[in-house]
Amino acid sequence: MKLYDIAHSRAGDKGDTLTLSLIPYKEEDYSLLCNAVTADKVKTHLSQIVKGEIIRYELPNISSLLFVCKQALGGGVTTSLRLDAHGKTLSYALLEMEM
């Protein structure tokens, strides 16, 4: 099973930092995601993309996780050579992760 099957995500950018929300379709799956989707596992999964640290924030009020990924946008949105310099498509890179 992929994260895609049980959760959705939106990517955001700030300089060279990528933000990825992870939101389960069913709120009761939040604790499952908390246990299974650690910052370390995301770091391994996104090793081709994220070169820096990944911080995970837990938001139990809205049953969501937030991953803040440093050095993730090819040096920064404005000067990156990447086709998707903002990393807007990367929400779906996170959702490719196998549970």
């Binding site: 959705h8 995500s9 950018d13 700030k14 933000t19 929300s21 809205i62 049953s63 937030l66």
Partner: peptide, 17 residues
């Protein structure tokens, strides 16, 4: 809905605290 609101609440947030 809650899904659209959650995605937007966390959009481009580098520290939710």
């Amino acid at each position: 809905n809650l899904q659209t609101a959650k995605e937007q609440l966390l959009y481009e947030v580098v520290n939710p605290y």
